[in-house]
Amino acid sequence: MNPMLLQCLSHTPLMGRLHPGRDIEDEVKQAIQRLRESLAQFEPEVIFLFGPDHFNGFFYDLMPPFCIGASASSIGDYGCPKGPLNVPADVAVQCAEAVLAHGVDCAISHRMRVDHGFAQPLQLLTGGLDRYPVVPIFINSVAAPLPSAHRARLLGEAVGRFAASLDRRAVFMASGGLSHNPPVPTLATAPPDIAERLIDGRHITPEQRGEREARTIDAARRFAAGQSDLLPINPEWDRDFLDILAQRDMAALDALSNAEITAKAGNSGHEVKSWIAANSAMAAGTGGQYRVRPEYYRAIPEWIAGFATLQGAVCR
């Protein structure tokens, strides 16, 4: 069995912009440092990174449920690094072919644009965008209609089986969640100008991007102050979800409905499907011979997020 590692972490563009307090920030830094040290010690030869987008790289003019990048570049939003990821195109294309052969419909992009959902975990855990070869795997988590948790698990299963066929040290990494409900517009209720940006917002100006980011930061301030009608963070649901992953209960993951996730974890709680896919990949890649350890959790209103980290390793 090839060496494999599982790492999952929440992301937030508000880290470093709004401050929940030194003690909490120190906790988060220590949790991230544990992942960073494990990754460096593991010395990966390829990272399969599952993550979402926030209407920065994928739009309603063509919105796939899943997409694998054979080439990818970060747009550099919220101060994240900008520029190309180190994507091994041959591995990415082979991965897409394997996923399709497994019965999971998945698009491929030779010019994928990613935002902080991919760039932030790479920056936090590797120090940049190109330290290790990375296959970026997009999971639509905000643009209805959404793929199900079951389909996300099957996607991960296909990626895990493909990774097991490689003679490489592989990491399955997930970025997103847990429960959170930031002010992301929906196509059904957006005014015409915002709807047009959701359909094709690739060419917004730096000024427009700055205004958008400022609105998110302001919304987070009001949310942390208890002056917002956004759905609250749900620690009970988050901890139950982490318990399901720790128990490696794939049937319980399959049973999560989109309606439940929206109602209990928020409109952006669907980012947990990245975690589902990565855990499923680890299960398939190791033949179930792995252990999972949720390492950190805290509800952080200043970041509008239930913030968590998790690691998994092959059983010895």
Rank of each mutant, 00 (worst) to 15 (best):
A255M: 01
G288S: 09
V159C: 01
L253G: 05
I24Y: 01
L178M: 13
G156M: 11
A98P: 03
A70T: 02
N86L: 13
L187I: 10
A278D: 14
D167I: 01
A152Y: 00
E97L: 10
P294S: 02
D167P: 02
P52Q: 15
D53I: 12
A251C: 08
C80V: 02
K273Q: 15
N181G: 00
A263D: 14
T262I: 13
R239A: 09
G210H: 13
D26H: 03
G21R: 09
Y297F: 15
P191T: 10
E260H: 15
N234I: 05
A219K: 06
Q123Y: 05
P301A: 08
V171Q: 01
E260D: 13
A305I: 14
S109W: 00
P88Q: 01
A284D: 09
A252T: 10
P206Y: 13
R17D: 01
E196K: 15
P133M: 11
D229E: 12
G177R: 07
I204T: 15
G127W: 05
P192H: 08
W303F: 08
I137D: 08
M112Y: 00
H19G: 06
W275T: 14
A219R: 04
G16M: 13
A188N: 04
F118K: 00
D200L: 04
P44Q: 14
H116T: 07
H102L: 06
L125F: 05
F162S: 04
A170M: 06
V87S: 08
L187Q: 08
I108E: 14
R197P: 03
G21V: 06
C80K: 01
P206C: 12
N86T: 06
N279H: 15
F66I: 12
Y60T: 07
W303N: 11
D240N: 14
N140A: 14
F138D: 13
E207P: 03
P13L: 09
A224I: 08
R113L: 07
S268A: 15
N234E: 09
F55R: 04
P182R: 05
M63H: 07
S228P: 07
F223Y: 15
A284W: 09
I233H: 03
A308I: 00
L100A: 10
G83V: 09
E27L: 02
P81Y: 04
S228E: 02
R151V: 09
A277R: 13
H180N: 13
G79M: 00
P147F: 07
L49Y: 07
S73R: 11
G210L: 12
N140C: 14
N56D: 12
C95S: 05
G117H: 02
G83M: 02
G160L: 08
S109L: 00
F307N: 12
Q123D: 09
A72G: 05
R215C: 11
S257G: 10
V87F: 08
R221Q: 10
S257L: 02
Q30L: 11
W275A: 13
N56M: 12
V114D: 00
G176H: 08
A92V: 05
M1V: 06
L253A: 07
F241N: 06
N140I: 09
Q7E: 03
I300K: 02
G287L: 03
T286N: 05
N267C: 05
M63P: 02
A70C: 06
D254T: 03
D229C: 03
S179T: 10
S73Q: 06
A96N: 03
A152G: 03
N267Y: 09
